[in-house]
């Protein structure tokens, strides 16, 4: 069981790293998907640990949420590319503090 949890934490860390370090907007979105996948794995692991269905049901609904979020994210990337020409976070220069 601990092995699966370690896998989940590792995937989550790698995904978080991708969001923080990468500048390609598509890759950042894909990294977020990896993070969500890690969370779903944790849900399934705990569901197995307790022998209850709750974790798996939450996992199913979380998959739906991840898919919806990515649709909006990709729509925004398309709108951004339409304005700026490339899906690159370094091209985000209109807003600064």
């Amino acid at each position: 069981m601990s092995g699966y949890l370690a896998l989940s934490l590792a995937l989550f860390s790698i995904g978080a790293l991708g969001v923080v370090l990468r500048r390609n907007l598509l890759v950042m979105l894909i990294s977020i998907e990896v993070m969500l996948n890690a969370a779903i794995l944790a849900l399934v692991v705990f569901s197995r640990m307790y022998g209850s269905v709750d974790g798996r049901v939450m996992g199913i609904l979380a998959i739906a949420v991840a898919a919806g979020e990515v649709a909006v994210g990709l729509a925004l990337v398309i709108a951004f590319v339409r304005l700026r020409g490339r899906p690159d976070a370094t091209a985000m220069d209109l807003l600064k503090w």
Partner: peptide, 26 residues
Amino acid sequence: VEGALRYLILGAMASAFLLMGIAFAY
């Protein structure tokens, strides 16, 4: 669009953290 994209990327990351937290709370 830029503001929305930054909001979305950080917001979606926050959602992943929340979901992970919910999984561990469970």
